[in-house]
Design a protein around this nucleic acid. Sequence first.
DNA 1: AGTGCCTACTTCCCGTCGGAGAGTTACCCA
DNA 2: TGGGTAACTCTCCGACGGGAAGTAGGCACT
Lengths: 146, 146
Amino acid sequence: MPTMTAAQKRAQAKAEYDAFLANCPSRQLLDRISDKWVALVLAALGSDCPHPDGAGEPRSMRYSELSRQLAGVSQKMLTQTLRSLERDGLLTRTVTPTVPVTVTYELTNLGLSLHGLMRGLKVWAETNMDDILTNREKYDTTGGAT
Amino acid sequence: MPTMTAAQKRAQAKAEYDAFLANCPSRQLLDRISDKWVALVLAALGSDCPHPDGAGEPRSMRYSELSRQLAGVSQKMLTQTLRSLERDGLLTRTVTPTVPVTVTYELTNLGLSLHGLMRGLKVWAETNMDDILTNREKYDTTGGAT
DNA sequence: AGTGCCTACTTCCCGTCGGAGAGTTACCCA
DNA sequence: TGGGTAACTCTCCGACGGGAAGTAGGCACT
């Protein structure tokens, strides 16, 4: 690939994002979205469960609502996760000056496109839990006691 | 849930797996698969790229091969990740007593079912990298300097 | 015989990250 | 003035990940 304009190079670079490479930006992105709380936040911010096949529409949720739904998340991690997702443009943060201030979060279109995958992960985990548990038992019994 | 056989309880538990609950086993599973290295290992252990639309067949790879492909992974994390994936029955570990011992890893059917999702994540990251980068710039410029 | 090397780990040290929980701000109402 | 609530923010600390060096054991070369 010798003679090439900058634009062409850029276009090719875009096409060549490869998360397998340590220094590729997409690696950092994959790292960020490969996160328990990111997955759960994105899964939560779609419809609850009405459309198991379709992706589901974005659903705006309040901070406290998310905190309740994602049982066990610390406030620190929830805030931190939401901030990074907002920064990446996956969701929007809206402050409404009500009695005590109300903050709502809602998926953007970009976020919605990830939502499908994340919901897929969640569903996969719930679906294959039994198999996994069985495999673990087998592994621990068979190979565990060397 | 008073009178119930163990089998009934198990059946109900299966139906009620919900990764949103902190104490649900599927939460732990989601936590485990929401991992940078897990995602990359699973993505790597499918065909390289020949069938961008189809999932791709499982491809057995050697330890050193994985180590090379997943640039930047520490041996410790690679071993650790592979072990946990083996324990969960997502891949098989095969030791061949060749010159220096050769260890190959290959996806099981269960692993293959996750492979699709992981590849999806990786592709998503590579595809939307530009948007994300743009959003970050915008965010850092707009909201960064309060 | 001894030295070296190769693969696939394992061990140790240490910096960073996540969890727990208390504190803070801002506003309204009694 | 005191209390209550939502959405954080701060602090401490233990656990986890990365880097690098050490290990096993079998062949190959000198």
